[in-house]
Design a binder for these strands. Structure first.
Lengths: 200, 200
DNA sequence: TTTTTAAGGAACCGATTGGTTCCTAAATGG
DNA sequence: CCATTTAGGAACCAATCGGTTCCTTAAAAA
């Protein structure tokens, strides 16, 4: 039960674990495609416990989304801060997305993309959440690009525009990967994108 | 009633018009998010007429998808075959996607992307349909790139890889556009992508 | 006229939807 | 002991789901 601050019977399940279980259900079936029984089966919790803990289905999605985004951002931030050249670090992080956009992982796709595509047009709060995710990834890459420009690895230019370009390429790979392509094809896309950072 | 080949009472509605109406409904609400009453309201047809004409909900989606893809391919093919330099034609077609990925149109998104993201993982037939669309767009760009390379406008290189890169960029813009960005930002992405074709 | 096909409304199917409200049992702190 | 909080099952809600079948009316070809 981990942390327990208050009075009364402590929660017998971990909120993060429950949110993660729900995340996997939403990931595989989308929001509309996920029913309450699906979530009950996925989390192992009862209807009552789920609603008491998260409020409603959409709040549960938000919790799942926050978890997903935090982990994705951490993974990219970690790879971008690896020792070695900045270009190698950027390439490594893009190759991670290439792997995530290939085969079975590619077919599963990205939860943020799925929710953005399904819900953003009708739910401003979710649209803002997705936009926030895209902005934050962009900031991570922009920071790396600035470091690369400082030591002469990366061509001069608007680092935000360059980072935005990489984010666009990543989301494109996520979409193309939904039909289950080969990792080699995705790696080729990464190589193309990396050319943008090269000195001329 | 346009064309009418057979015996008996002719159909009183146009199959293409009905498919197009259904297309708009699926476009706005996805597949799971679209109910039969939604389709009835959107097409103005009765339950019986819809099922008699298209079979079932998924076949109707396929008809709508085919219509959408045919129009999209035609629009891109037209722009790519405009007089002028090949690079200008490619840029013009990419700018069309930039426009379609901005503001209200961007928020609405792309039906192929929406269906690919929502359904591809669980429906091989729809996955293949989406993959086919991506391949065909790639072929259009590959053809233009070959022409550009022949007259020295475009740098040498694997035209399929370069075309695939453009397709990836397009799908990325479609995703980013779901949160409703500025057209200027999308145009900047087009400019970045165009650099890939420049002579070095 | 007869045959064939479609229109389109109606009614119905069993199942499920998201959501809410109870209840009793149980576990904690005061 | 007592107040508080949660667990988790149960029951229920009105609404809707995708899908099917039936019917009468109607239009066109044979």
């Amino acid at each position: 039960m981990a942390t327990h601050a208050g009075l009364g019977r402590p929660r017998e399940f971990d909120l993060d674990v429950a949110a993660r279980d729900a995340m996997n259900v939403f990931w595989d079936h989308g929001y509309e495609g996920t029913s309450l029984p699906d979530l009950i089966e996925g989390t192992g919790l009862s209807r009552g416990s789920l609603y008491k803990a998260f409020g409603d289905k959409k709040k549960l999605l938000l919790a799942a989304l926050d978890l997903y985004m935090a982990e994705g951002l951490r993974a990219t931030a970690d790879l971008l801060s690896q020792p070695g050249t900045v270009k190698e670090a950027i390439r490594a992080s893009l190759l991670r997305y290439a792997r995530l956009s290939s085969g079975e992982a590619g077919r599963r796709g990205c939860l943020v993309v799925a929710i953005a595509v399904e819900m953003a047009a009708h739910d401003p709060a979710l649209a803002e959440r997705a936009a926030q995710m895209f902005r934050r990834i962009q900031q991570l890459y922009a920071g790396a690009i600035v470091r690369g420009q400082a030591n002469g690895e990366i061509a001069e230019g608007d680092e935000q525009a360059m980072a935005r370009f990489l984010v666009c390429q990543i989301q494109g790979m996520r979409v193309l990967g939904k039909t289950g392509g080969l990792e080699a094809d995705m790696v080729a896309l990464v190589d193309s994108a990396m050319l943008m950072l090269e000195r001329n």
